[in-house]
Design a protein around this nucleic acid. Structure first.
Lengths: 245, 245
DNA sequence: CGACGCTTTGACCCGTTTCAACAATGGTGG
DNA sequence: CCACCATTGTTGAAACGGGTCAAAGCGTCG
């Protein structure tokens, strides 16, 4: 289990394109990971916390969010296996958002010190992780576009395209199907819509035969049409293959 | 002029809290900067570009934005003097958004190679710049909240609070007044609202005596009330003083 | 079987958009 | 110094996307 967690990390870092040197790989495998099984809807880190470790998603599904004084919850991103959602806590002491599971998950914790040592001794790994964090930032920018400039139908389409490509990149899709434990309420919190309206839009997507989505499994029936509806442009995910083009 | 640009950079980096060592400061001052005066509404970098240099705002005002196929423009962030808005192009080859001036500006260009050398030789500077980029990401997250969860009145209030604190951090405010060359159309593109509605909301803010805003100068009359209206929480800007608390 | 969480539905309402003018402002050239 | 033009800001009326509220269906799991 611990081995598989570390392997996921190595694979993730190599997905950038550059294979790791033996010394680098070894340094990664020596990282002191602590695994934890977490059930759904458990906060991993809370807003205002000052973490001393960061966490990697080994299995499951996380999201980060902020709560507003008026009770609104805004989801800021979804995190799939291989990602290290709060790596930024290495540099920004105080969490400005919370991190929670939205499905039963396996999380690996890594002490900050260990990561800091890693970064100083292996600048190439530092560069790869730096790049990862910038991709997260690129996704955030696209989410601004999503909530700011697209209508409900396009927003939800876009979210589904993003999830599909992110999951595909880590090998968690079968064809155009993927496990999608996100509830419509969570889609609503992520897109700035009401659950009612999300529901109606999802039904519209189903009616147009763009997707099927029930009991935690989402199948994209017409990816091209879904991307068109979403005005989706893959570039922002900065996937290795796309970058090479 | 070139000296003042470099000084602004040094000051910005030291604003993090840690004063730079003489060797570090010297390395910065040796950076090969190219200055350029640019009038308003000129693209500095375009979506799809693969820049070989990055740029620092010395004077003026920039914004980054994306265009959608349907003609909508979404502004993603505003950039004030001292910031290096496209530093990320060091790590993400292809620009996923554009960068443009919204006021006459002075820009300093720095070749990627020079920055790369700097990062490898001075890990502390790398850490500071890394942190800067993460703060940009934190601001993007807050913009997701803004467009996703706040109504028009709060969105505009929030934008003004953000600008005020960012400008204050680099010493570009006088009291609670600051130079604000942003048009209402740009506010609309940044907040995902129509210009008409922005106009009405700004008038409401004026009517409630929270702000004055005319001819490029914005004065906040009641900062506390403006922050309340915006549900503003300073934490996300990760200013040095706030981090120390 | 019953309870709980998630999805679905209908009816009504409101914030925001759209369209279409018009007024103010500021910069430019004669 | 004024006439002109292009931006930017302002206004009103009508329409619409999406929100709210409230209740009912449905799966699933102890």
């Amino acid at each position: 289990m611990l081995r598989s967690a570390l392997n996921r990390l190595v694979r993730k870092l190599e997905a950038e394109g550059t294979p790791l040197a033996p010394a680098e790989k070894e340094a990664l495998l020596r990282l002191p990971l602590t695994l934890r099984e977490v059930r759904a809807d458990q906060d991993i880190v809370r807003q205002g916390d000052r973490p001393t470790q960061c966490c990697m998603v080994v299995e499951g599904f996380l999201c980060s969010y902020k709560m507003l004084p008026d009770g609104e919850r805004q989801i800021l991103s979804f995190h799939v296996p291989g990602e290290i959602p709060d790596l930024q806590s290495l540099f920004l002491e105080k969490m400005d958002h919370a991190l929670t599971t939205i499905a039963p998950s396996t999380i690996a914790f890594i002490p900050h010190e260990a990561v800091n040592v890693l970064l100083e001794q292996h600048f190439r790994i530092a560069r790869i992780l730096w790049r990862e964090m910038l991709i997260d930032a690129a996704i955030s920018r696209e989410w601004i576009v999503n909530t700011g400039s697209r209508d409900a139908y396009a927003r939800i389409s876009h979210l589904l395209c993003e999830l599909f490509y992110k999951l595909q990149a880590v090998g968690l899709t079968k064809g155009t199907s993927f496990n999608c434990p996100i509830t419509q309420t969570e889609v609503a919190d992520a897109t700035g819509l009401s659950t009612v309206h999300v529901n109606r839009s999802v039904q519209e997507l189903r009616g147009n035969r763009l997707i099927e989505w029930e009991r935690g499994t989402c199948t994209i029936l017409d990816l091209q049409a879904l991307e068109d509806a979403a005005m989706f442009d893959l570039d922002y995910l900065h996937l290795a293959s796309a970058g090479a083009a």
